[in-house]
Simulated assay, not measured.
Amino acid sequence: MSNANDNNGQLNTQSDSSKEKPWGGRFTEPTDAFVEQFTASVEFDQRLYFHDIQGSIAHATMLAKVGVLTEEEKTQIIQGLKEVQAEIESGKFQWSVKLEDVHMNVEAALTEKIGITGKKLHTGRSRNDQVATDIRLYLRDEIDVIASEITRLQDGMARLAKREAATIMPGFTHLQTAQPVTFGHHILAWNEMLQRDYERLMDCRKRVNIMPLGAAALAGTTYPIDRSITAELLGFDRPSENSLDSVSDRDFAIEFCSFASLVMIHLSRASEELILWASAQFDFIDLPDRFCTGSSIMPQKKNPDVPELVRGKSGRVTGHMISLLMLMKSQPLAYNEDNQEDKEPLFDV
């Protein structure tokens, strides 16, 4: 799988009168240029392109199975989507602010390639359930990567703990010398923190892996879709059960950020101890030069920048969790444009 950078391809911020907005039927004047720029999310949600296209391929496959699309139309759509993906990944794709978001940019490019058949892709769905699905697909993949990295770190800690099983060091309470322990025992305390983090992450994944697609704008669709087919194609455990909640729920993102805040607090605590232990006052450990920096005017100094930055970034992650909680606290059902603000904090976390 390829991951896109935030600015993959070119971003066109100019008005493009040759393309009408899909929702523009009842409007009698064009969107104000400032409003267009203010409400657009394509500058940051374009990184969802891979998952948006995968969701669309599954949706088209399902529509063909239930008879809404012909096999020929399905084939055209899927081939066109793959061509759009290739253009994005090569950096040739022209992102347009006028088209607002990743979904409309991809769909417009598809329609330009294959004609009116491209518009049939949106049958039986809305951008509301589409974006909710994209974020879950994206976050599920990120969770799997993070889980693998936690396991890798735990493996390293276990090897270090075994090696240092007999290395005596002071144990502390109140940062005062208390009882003797071993360095291996201390490292395994960090490992216990990470084990809880891993279990929390896997529990979070269960709630991420539920498919909202099919809820449409807020109340489902009259087309004879089969959500179980799409859920299976996309690897979801099951479809969601309430359409109003499906399009407006961001609990899963908040829960992930809660996990992330805790794991960062644990890494911050470990970093604090590394910083203390590497100081002249403790002199317990010597950090490798490749993980440190020096001073331009004090050549004797060796600064533990990496653990200091980990400690600092814990505040940034925790702040994003609070942002998402505040984002959701006053929203009535169902979808509101406020939810556009969920992505940048989540991506940064």
Rank of each mutant, 00 (worst) to 15 (best):
N3Y: 15
A4F: 05
D6K: 12
N7D: 14
G9P: 03
N12H: 08
N12F: 09
T13R: 13
S15H: 14
W23A: 05
G24R: 06
G25S: 13
R26G: 09
F27N: 11
D32M: 02
F34G: 07
V35N: 14
F38H: 15
A40N: 08
V42L: 09
D52C: 06
Q54G: 06
H59K: 08
T61D: 08
T61S: 13
M62N: 05
V68M: 04
T70Y: 06
Q76V: 01
Q76F: 05
Q79M: 13
S96F: 07
D101F: 00
V102M: 03
N105I: 01
E107L: 03
T111Q: 15
E112I: 09
I116P: 12
K120S: 04
H122A: 08
T123A: 03
Q130C: 09
V131P: 01
I135S: 04
R136V: 03
L137I: 09
L139W: 00
I143L: 12
R152I: 13
R152W: 11
R152L: 11
R163F: 05
A165N: 12
A166D: 13
I168S: 14
L175R: 10
A178C: 12
A178T: 14
A178Q: 03
Q179Y: 10
F183P: 00
H185Y: 14
I187N: 00
N191Q: 14
Q195W: 13
R196D: 02
E199T: 11
R200F: 05
D203K: 05
C204Q: 01
V208K: 00
I210P: 03
P212C: 03
P224E: 14
D226W: 06
I229Y: 03
T230S: 11
E232Q: 15
L233H: 14
L233C: 08
F236P: 00
D237R: 02
S240D: 14
S243R: 05
D245P: 12
R250V: 04
D251N: 14
F252S: 01
F259H: 00
S261R: 07
L262Q: 01
S268C: 10
A270G: 07
L274A: 02
D283L: 09
D283G: 11
D286R: 15
D289I: 11
S296E: 07
M298F: 10
M298R: 08
P299D: 06
P299F: 07
P299T: 09
K301P: 01
K302L: 11
P304E: 03
R316G: 08
H320T: 04
K329V: 07
Q331V: 09
Q331R: 15
P332E: 15
L333I: 13
A334C: 10
Q340H: 11
E344R: 12
F347I: 08
